[in-house]
Deep mutational scan, measured.
Amino acid sequence: KKRTSIEVSVKGVLETHFLKCPKPAAQEISSLADSLQLEKEVVRVWFCNRRQKEKR
């Protein structure tokens, strides 16, 4: 599977969401993915990776 490069503008939206809610529910991930025209899996993994980054 190819890596998905995420646009800077999209990263901004994801970051804003992350600050409000670092662990979104599946439904939130779905609606976020739809509005950003990304796959749900890509958004889910982004949040996973972002949470791990917080720990470091």
Rank of each mutant, 00 (worst) to 15 (best):
E41F: 01
R56M: 13
K11T: 11
V10T: 10
E7V: 08
A26R: 10
V43F: 05
D34E: 10
L32H: 01
R51L: 08
L38P: 00
S9A: 12
E39R: 05
F47N: 13
F47C: 02
E39S: 11
L36G: 03
F18W: 06
E15A: 05
E54I: 04
R50H: 00
K2A: 07
Q52T: 08
E54T: 00
G12V: 12
K55S: 07
K55W: 06
G12R: 09
K20A: 08
K53W: 01
K1A: 08
K2G: 07
T16S: 14
V42M: 07
L38T: 04
L14I: 04
K40Q: 11
E54G: 02
L38M: 10
C48L: 11
A33S: 06
A33I: 02
A26Q: 07
K20W: 01
V8Y: 14
I6V: 09
L32R: 01
K1I: 07
R56A: 11
F47V: 02
R56H: 09
Q37G: 14
G12A: 10
V8N: 15
T16Q: 13
C48H: 13
H17V: 12
P22K: 08
T16G: 13
E28V: 07
A33V: 00
L38C: 04
L38G: 04
E54F: 01
K23R: 13
P24R: 07
K20T: 11
N49T: 08
V13S: 12
L36Y: 08
L19K: 06
I6T: 10
R3T: 14
E41Y: 02
E15G: 01
W46G: 04
K40D: 08
F18D: 02
T4L: 12
Q52W: 04
R51C: 06
D34L: 05
R44C: 02
C21I: 05
T16W: 08
R44E: 14
T16Y: 08
Q37R: 10
L32T: 00
Q52Y: 11
K20R: 07
E15V: 03
L32G: 02
L14Q: 00
E28F: 03
T4G: 10
P22L: 02
K23T: 14
Q27M: 08
K1D: 10
A33C: 03
L14M: 04
E39V: 05
S35L: 11
F18R: 02
V10C: 06
T16I: 07
A25P: 08
E28A: 04
E7R: 11
F47Y: 05
C21E: 05
K23H: 14
F18E: 01
